[in-house]
Simulated assay, not measured.
Amino acid sequence: MKRQFDDVQLGSIELFCLAAETGSFTAAALEAGVTPAAVSRTISRLEERLGVRLFVRTTRSIRLTEGGRCYYEHCRQALTQLIEAEREVMGKQLEPAGTLRISLPTTYGHHRILPLLPGFRARYPKIRVDVHLGNRNIDFVSEGYDIAIRVRAQPDSTLIARHLEDAALVLVAAPAYLDRAGVPQSLDDLAQHECIQFELPSSGRRISWLFRTADGLREIFAEGGYCCSEDVLGGVTLARHGAGLFQAYRFSVEKELADGSLMEVLPEYRGASRPFTLLYPHNRYVPLRVRAFIDYLVEQQRRWQGSD
């Protein structure tokens, strides 16, 4: 086989991937132990060799061009294969290592995933975990994430989607609110109550409330004087302090239901849920750290399902 790359070119590809993943020449330089100027010169030489502009540069940030994104996806996969090959040859195939970057919705992150991470790292101490908590859609390539968990994930041929659970919904309110405003007796009564809303950050649309009735699933767009965005737990806090009714995931209010600071309302209409999905890039070779985390989550599903 004719040699296509020298050591300098392979190093340039690694620096390019670091810059793409960190979104900064400075951050890439810090991780690689070189100067930002060296990273900038390396990227410029790589762009000249390819005849393609890889990054759009501003004074404050960089982002991949369409060509840069395509090049990154291929380079990242190739480097991953090289790393996996070295680990296998060196007998380290059973020792996942490196940085795992995860993006989680706030509520699911706090109540489902974050409590699991100490156990995960105890099993795999060579894996460092970086967690992003937020409800916006992320870009796996430009932002360098390995895994994301989302509710109502949209179909995407570049991603593998794995169903985690259908999280049960529950309508709750504080005893003080129910003493003041009365207890709803039917779904139609919700129109007369203060209903705390949550706004989707991706679309600005307020999400509906879902209820299971004898005729099937019923969707209600309730109204009220409170609306939260970004963090669903804001609605739980408002409800706990008597602001009104709020529909939450049952796993996020189990403690409050147990201690009486929140009460379930209209329990005869429970049974609705929303799905949570694990997403990761559709690469032929999945890094060991990603495989390890996916397998670990799958182990936890039985416990989640048994507790709900």
Rank of each mutant, 00 (worst) to 15 (best):
Y296V: 01
R291T: 02
Q192C: 07
E84P: 00
R303H: 13
G234W: 08
G271C: 04
E299W: 09
D139T: 05
L210Y: 14
A28V: 01
F140W: 13
S202Y: 01
V141R: 09
E194Y: 08
V298G: 00
L82E: 10
Q185T: 09
A161M: 11
G68M: 03
I102C: 11
F16V: 06
Y124G: 03
A161E: 15
P287V: 01
P275F: 04
L50P: 05
D231H: 13
P115S: 07
I102S: 13
R150G: 02
S203Y: 03
R101S: 11
A258P: 07
A122R: 14
L64M: 04
A153K: 07
E14S: 12
E84Y: 10
V34R: 08
R289K: 15
I294G: 02
R205P: 00
E48R: 14
V236Q: 12
F276T: 10
A29Y: 03
R136T: 10
C70H: 14
G144H: 07
P105I: 00
S157F: 07
Q305R: 15
A27D: 15
A181W: 01
T277D: 12
A168L: 11
R136L: 10
E143T: 01
F120V: 01
F5C: 08
L171W: 03
L245Y: 10
Q301F: 00
D231Q: 13
